[in-house]
């Protein structure tokens, strides 16, 4: 039962990744793509934690944490670049 519910959750998150990727490719201009990238990384991070639970290794949680840090820095850098250039 638990495995079935977790598989359903994986399907929902996978559809979210597909929609965010579609928006990332379609987005008419740079800020729209940046928002899509933000959402895409935010959906991918729980998937990484789910991978850690699936593999049963706590060390994979560090991967998710570092991924979150880098995603945050990336979005802030994009915003700053869009604001006044590098």
């Amino acid at each position: 039962m638990v495995d079935l519910i977790l598989k359903a959750a994986l399907v929902f998150a996978g559809m979210g990744v597909a929609l965010a990727t579609f928006q990332l490719l379609r987005g008419p201009d740079a800020p729209n793509r940046a928002v899509a990238l933000d959402v895409l990384t935010l959906i991918t991070m729980p998937l990484l934690v789910g991978l850690a639970v699936h593999a049963g290794r706590i060390i994979y949680l560090d991967v998710a944490l570092v991924y979150a840090v880098l995603a945050f820095l990336g979005v802030v850098a994009l915003a700053r670049y869009y604001d006044r250039g590098i």
């Binding site: 519910i5 977790l6 959750a9 929902f12 979210g16 990744v17 929609l19 965010a20 928006q23 959906i43």
Partner: peptide, 23 residues
């Protein structure tokens, strides 16, 4: 475990709705 799995399902639904919202 059942409570955890249901919470995960609700959370992934919200993730999906967020991705739907940006479209």
């Amino acid at each position: 475990n059942l409570i955890g799995a249901v919470l995960t399902l609700f959370g992934s639904m919200f993730l999906f709705l967020g991705a739907l919202g940006i479209i």
